[in-house]
Design a protein around this nucleic acid. Structure first.
Lengths: 215, 215
DNA sequence: TCAAGGAGTGAATTGAGGTTCACTTGCCGT
DNA sequence: ACGGCAAGTGAACCTCAATTCACTCCTTGA
C-alpha cells in the first residue's frame, strides 16, 4: 500500500468540494443559471473542469446541491420563526419580513432560486424546496386557526397563496426593478407582509401586527 | 413577371403560418416547452423544418408569438371582467375564478405559460404578459379603493401579490397534483378567490361575495 | 407550353456546453 | 529515493437541437 487518505488529504478534498460549491453558488448569485457553466465554476474554484466531475456526478447534481444548501438555510430561518414566540399573526409577519429582507439582500440569487428558468433537473430541487417552505406556512396557519387568530380556510391552499404572493411581489417579474433606498425596500416588505397577513388573518389581527411591527 | 401573390397564394401562406402557430401551441399544451422542437412543430404542421424559417426568423420568435396569442386572449377575458358590472369585490372574485377555470381546463398549457422553464427569449414574452395581467388587477384594485370597497394599500404591490397568489396555488409546483373531480377543482378555485379577495377587500366584502357567488 | 421566381424541402452544418479519459502530478509508506 | 496509487488536468469528444442553403417543386402570366 502506498496511498492513504491521511487527514491532510481529506481536508484538501473537503476544501475542494466546498470551494466548488461556493464558486457555483457565487456564479448563480452573480449571473444566474445562464452563466453558471461547469467550466466557469471550475475556473472560479481554481480547479480544472474535469476535477468538478471527481466531486459531482453531473452538473445537475452539483447545482441541485447548491440549491439545497441555500434553501435549507432559508427554511431553517423560517422554521425558527414559525416555532418562535409571539402571536401567529406576528410570526407570519415576521416570517414574511425575514424572507423579504434576505431576498432583497441577495436579489440575484433569490431570483435564480425562485423563478429563473433553469434545467429541469435543477428545477426539481427547487420544487422540493418550495414545498418545504410552504409546509412551514401550513403549520403556522394551522396553529393560527387553532387559536382563532386566523380565519377558517384550507391551510394548504392559503399557504400556497401566501408563498406565491410574497415571492411574486418580491422577486418575480412584476417586482419593482429598483430599490433605490432602504425606505422603498422597507415599504415593499411592509406592504407584502400586510397582504400576506390579510390572506389568513382577521382584520383585527392585521391591524394589531401592523401597529406593533418593528419599523 | 411570372409569379404574383394571387389571393389563393396569400391564403395558402396565411394558412401555413396559422398551422405552424397552432402546431406549436398544441405541442406546448401537450408536452410543454421541452418537447416543442422546431422539427416537431414542422412535422405536426405538415411542413418541412426549413419551411418554419420562411415564416418565423427563429424558434424564439415563433414561440414568443404563440405566447402572445394565448396571453392576449387571457388578458382580454380579464379586462372584460374588470370593466364589467358588479362591485369591485365581485369583479375581483370573478376575474380570479375565470382565470382559474381556464387554467384548470388547459392545465399543461397554463403550466407552460406561467412557470415552466423555457428559453430566456421566450421568457421575456412571458414577463410582458404577466405585467399586462398585473396591470388589469392594478386598475381593478384602484377602482375598488376609490369606491371604498378595498382597503388602503399600494395597488401595484397588492396586484402582484394577487397574481402571485392565484398563479402559485393554481399551477405552481405547490398546486395539488390531482383534481380528481369537478368538486375538488371548484373548492380550490373558491378558496383561491377567497384568499385573493382577502388581500385587498375589507372582511365584509369578502363575506358578501362569498355568499353571493355562483357555486 | 414555358420561363421566371417565389415557396418548400430536409440533409448537412453549426455551435454551445456537458462529459470523458488518457495522461500528468503529487502524496504516501517503505 | 522509489514504486504505487489517487487526484488533477484539459483538450477532445459527444450530443442535441437550431439554423442554413443548394436544390426541387409550384404557381403564374404570357
Amino acid at each position: 500500500m502506498a496511498y492513504r487518505r491521511t487527514p491532510s488529504v481529506v481536508t484538501r478534498l473537503e476544501d475542494n468540494r466546498a470551494r466548488i460549491l461556493a464558486a457555483a453558488r457565487d456564479l448563480v448569485a452573480e449571473g444566474g443559471w445562464r452563466h453558471a457553466h461547469v467550466a466557469t465554476v471550475a475556473d472560479k474554484a481554481g480547479v480544472a473542469t474535469g476535477t468538478v466531475y471527481r466531486y459531482f456526478p453531473s452538473k445537475a447534481e452539483l447545482f441541485a446541491e447548491v440549491l439545497a444548501i441555500v434553501s435549507s438555510r432559508e427554511r431553517d430561518v423560517l422554521a425558527a420563526i414559525v416555532d418562535g414566540d409571539g402571536s401567529p399573526a406576528a410570526r407570519l409577519r415576521g416570517a414574511v419580513e425575514a424572507f423579504g429582507k434576505r431576498a432583497l439582500r441577495g436579489r440575484r440569487l433569490a431570483h435564480a432560486m425562485i423563478v429563473e428558468p433553469c434545467e429541469p433537473e435543477i428545477d426539481q430541487a427547487r420544487l422540493v424546496w418550495r414545498a418545504a417552505l410552504c409546509e412551514e406556512f401550513v403549520r403556522l396557519i394551522g396553529m393560527g386557526q387553532e387559536q382563532g387568530a386566523f380565519r377558517h380556510c384550507d391551510p394548504r391552499i392559503a399557504a400556497a397563496c401566501v408563498v406565491g404572493a410574497f415571492m411574486e411581489a418580491l422577486v418575480g417579474p412584476l417586482a419593482p426593478e429598483a430599490f433605490a433606498d432602504a425606505e422603498a425596500a422597507q415599504h415593499l416588505i411592509d406592504q407584502i407582509a400586510d397582504n400576506c397577513l390579510a390572506i389568513v388573518a382577521t382584520l383585527q389581527n392585521v391591524e394589531a401586527t401592523r401597529i406593533g411591527r418593528t419599523a
